[in-house]
Each structure stands twice: as C-alpha cells, then as structure tokens.
Simulated scan of single mutants.
Amino acid sequence: MCETTLLFYKPYGVLCQFTNPGDTPEPRLTLKDFIALPDFYPAGRLDFDSEGLLLLTNHGPLQHRLAHRQFAHARTYWVQVERIPADSDLEPLRQGIRIQDYHTRPAQVHRLEPEPLLPPRQPPVRYRKSVPTSWLELTLTEGRNRQVRRMTAAIGFPTLRLVRVAMTVMIPQRRRTPQPLTLTLEGLQPGQWRWLTPTEGQWLQRLG
C-alpha cells in the first residue's frame, strides 16, 4: 500500500480540516475524528454539507498538483436537485455559465436514472412533499467554493444533496499522451478510509 496518500469517504456534517474553529456555537466533527495520522492534509476540499471522496496526503508538492484547478483534474459528483430538469435545462452547464464574478468551464452533465444507490444521509435530506426531486451526474475540471450548488441554482434546480464519487487524475507520460487514473468510493462507507494501492501510489508519484 501507499502510505503517503489516502482516500476518505467524508460524511455529511464533517469539517474538511483537523481542527475545530472557535467561532461555532457547538463543536463539529473534523477529519481528526476519523483519521488519526500526523502531517496529513486534504488535497482539495469538500463543504461541511457535502459528502464523498477526499484525498489526503503528507506530500506537499503532490497536494498542490491534486488540488489546484490549473491542473484540471476531473471530479465527478452525484447531485440531488429539486424538480426534474429537461436535457435543455442542463445545456448552460455544458457550455459554461456565469456565476458571481467568474465563468465556469464547460461541464459534463446528465440525469441519472434510476437514482444512484447511496448510504442514507444523516440527517436525512429535507424534502418539500409537493416538489419532485431528481439526480444528476456532473463532472467538473475545477473546484471553486460551492460551485456545484451555485451552478444548479443558476439554472433553477437547487441542490439538496451532493456527493463526490470519483476523481480522475491525468498522469503525464514520457513522449506519450497523459493517462487517466480514476479513484472512486468503491468499497467504502461514510467515515471509512483506505490507503492507495501500490499501483495507484506509483502513478500519483509521477505528479509530485
């Protein structure tokens, strides 16, 4: 196994850091409640109210190469939204959409049918009984603050639940086209983590 990088299934309601801020009325769960390893840091972030795949490493250059949007690694999310979008509703996300002070890169997005099999969220999502919901699969090559939620809200379909399920890292090859390495949540439940396999670790070393 590769003991410089691990893959964690972050549950809902966990801060993406190892310390608890002093400005919250009640203590919140942090990465320290699940991962008791010194000098490991997240390579990228997931919001407090988001779930799913998070990579952590103790290798500084690798952390930068994995996290920074300039390297355009693809991140795939399953997104539960209010209402049921038509394919035409999703087209602005495929073209790139203006949000606040930036224009998003084109995303890959389609409806998921049937809905994905995921562990129940704790606490459960709050539904409006009169409003149907649906699931999208959305792949981005950038990761700005609360970007997925802002994108779906901008086209009129607010996000209810957000789970990052995969990350595809483009590994450079000598005089050859970069090759993809896709990491997923397969085999993990919320709160669990695993070391990368030797093969995964060897591939990622080419980034750092």
Rank of each mutant, 00 (worst) to 15 (best):
F8Q: 03
Q17H: 06
T24I: 15
T24Y: 14
P25A: 08
E26A: 14
P27G: 12
P27N: 10
R28Q: 15
L29A: 14
L29T: 14
K32D: 15
K32Y: 15
I35N: 05
I35K: 00
P38H: 06
Y41H: 15
D47G: 00
G60Y: 04
G60M: 02
P61A: 02
P61T: 05
Q63N: 13
H64I: 11
L66F: 01
H68D: 13
R75N: 11
R75I: 09
Y77L: 08
W78P: 08
V81N: 02
E82L: 05
P85T: 09
L90D: 03
E91F: 11
E91A: 14
G96T: 13
Q100C: 06
D101W: 03
D101S: 09
Y102I: 05
A107S: 04
R111N: 00
L112R: 03
E115H: 06
L117W: 10
L118H: 12
L118Y: 12
P120T: 05
Q122D: 14
P123L: 10
R128K: 12
V131L: 08
P132L: 06
W135D: 08
E137Y: 06
E137G: 12
N145Q: 03
R146L: 00
R149I: 00
R150H: 02
A153T: 07
G156I: 04
T159I: 05
T159Y: 09
R161I: 01
L162E: 02
A166I: 04
M167I: 12
T168A: 07
V169L: 15
V169A: 15
P172N: 05
R174T: 15
R176C: 11
P178I: 04
P180Q: 08
T182M: 06
L183W: 04
T184L: 08
Q189A: 10
L196Y: 03
P198C: 09
P198Q: 10
T199C: 13
G201H: 06
L207V: 05
L207A: 09
